[in-house]
Amino acid sequence: MSTSTKDSGLALVSPRLPKHKIAGLAGTSFKPQHLQAILADDAPGGFFEVHAENYMGAGGPPHAALARIREEFPVSLHGVCMSIGGPQPLDRAHLKRFKDLVERYEPALVSEHLAWSTHETIYYNDLLPLPYTKATVARVAEHIDEVQETIGRRLLLENPSTYVTFPDSTMSETAFLRELVNRTGCGLLLDINNVFVSATNQGYSALAYLADFPLDHVGEIHLAGHAEQEDDEGELLLIDSHDGPVADAVWKLYELVIGRSGPLPTLIEWDSAIPDWPLLKREATAAQAILDRRAQAQPREKIRAGV
């Protein structure tokens, strides 16, 4: 005797939106002013990423533009204000809005920053660092668990760009991230520009950092431009500004990472001094070329290895 879905208590739930491939693709930040140029482009690129906080209203032009993009392309949802590294409980109202966006747009990837941006009722327009200690690991792991349980999805956690460090840190950033992955099952978003900025500012080797980074858990890569300034002592200070092309040094690090990891979804971030669509697309095309070369090399490597 057959059993109906209703009688068995099971529900066949189909995605409301198209499922688009994102593996091995390069994409860009989505800016609504580019919508018409993207739709008119014969080869617009791979995927688009949006900041969740820009879409937490109920409707209006931002949602209309994003809904149109989501029909044709995979979307990555990137949070910037969860304050997942903060000492206080997560904002339940903010988390609920974040969950609603995940359900509304069914993004291919969901991510947040390893940072904090709130203190009591004060909200800072910045992503602030935290000490890398066992106590901080426990607190951040609880927050990650809460987010993942709420959205029903794996969260990718992004390494920060840093300008100061804490003397009471007892582990490296890579060890801290690895511990969070082990405790929560979260994934990682590797921002290679952040690695270069932090390494330059703190005086350590970006190559050594990447050699110790748990690449097996990376679900997305970010690339971006940075600005050069001087600190109070006249030393070089890099700012993660997202206002220009990816620097040559960051491209070189990216090629090394992709050589080790294989082709991972890669996003070009450009959030201020935003150029016309062709320039932004050109950056993504350069990343796609690196991904494609790595993908083409994989079969040959398997043959040589006897796979």
Rank of each mutant, 00 (worst) to 15 (best):
S205Y: 01
K134A: 15
Q148V: 07
A115Y: 05
D168Y: 14
L207H: 14
T165N: 12
R139N: 13
E142Q: 14
R139E: 09
P129Q: 11
T200K: 04
D145A: 08
A135H: 04
A175P: 00
H119T: 13
E149D: 15
A208E: 13
T150Q: 10
C186E: 02
S117W: 10
I122Q: 11
N201Y: 08
D212Q: 14
P160S: 15
L156E: 02
P160W: 11
N194Y: 07
V147C: 11
E149M: 05
Q148T: 02
T174Y: 01
A115R: 11
Y132P: 00
S172T: 10
Y209P: 04
Q202V: 06
T170G: 06
E112A: 09
N201D: 11
P131S: 02
F196H: 15
G185Y: 08
L189K: 05
L128F: 09
T133A: 07
Y209G: 02
F166C: 15
A199Q: 05
G185L: 08
T174E: 04
A115S: 15
D126S: 13
G185D: 05
S169G: 09
L210N: 01
V137H: 04
L155V: 08
L130H: 06
H113F: 07
G152L: 10
A199T: 05
K134Y: 13
Q148D: 05
V110K: 09
L188S: 08
Y132G: 02
Y209K: 12
Y209V: 02
L210I: 00
V147W: 08
A175F: 00
P107R: 00
A211W: 00
G187F: 07
T200R: 00
P160L: 10
D168S: 11
A138F: 04
P131H: 02
D145C: 15
G187M: 03
S169Y: 04
V137R: 06
T170N: 06
N125P: 00
S205W: 03
D168I: 12
G187W: 04
S117Y: 10
P131L: 01
I122K: 11
F166A: 15
T200G: 04
K134L: 12
R104N: 12
W116S: 07
C186D: 01
N201E: 08
L114E: 10
L128A: 05
Y124Q: 09
A135I: 01
A211R: 06
N193E: 08
L156C: 02
D168Q: 15
E173N: 09
T162Q: 15
I151W: 06
R183W: 06
T150C: 14
V197P: 14
L109G: 01
P107W: 06
T121N: 10
L155S: 03
V110N: 05
Y163T: 04
A206C: 03
Q148E: 03
W116M: 08
G152M: 08
L190G: 03
A108T: 07
A141H: 04
L188C: 00
M171S: 09
V164L: 11
T136S: 14
Q202E: 14
L156G: 10
L180F: 12
Y124W: 13
P160C: 14
V147Q: 07
V164Y: 07
G203S: 03
V140K: 03
R153P: 03
V140E: 01
S111Q: 06
Y105M: 05
E142N: 13
E149N: 14
R178V: 01
T184R: 13
N194M: 09
D191N: 11
F166P: 09
R153D: 04
T170F: 02
H119S: 15
A141D: 08
L114A: 07
A208C: 03
L188T: 06
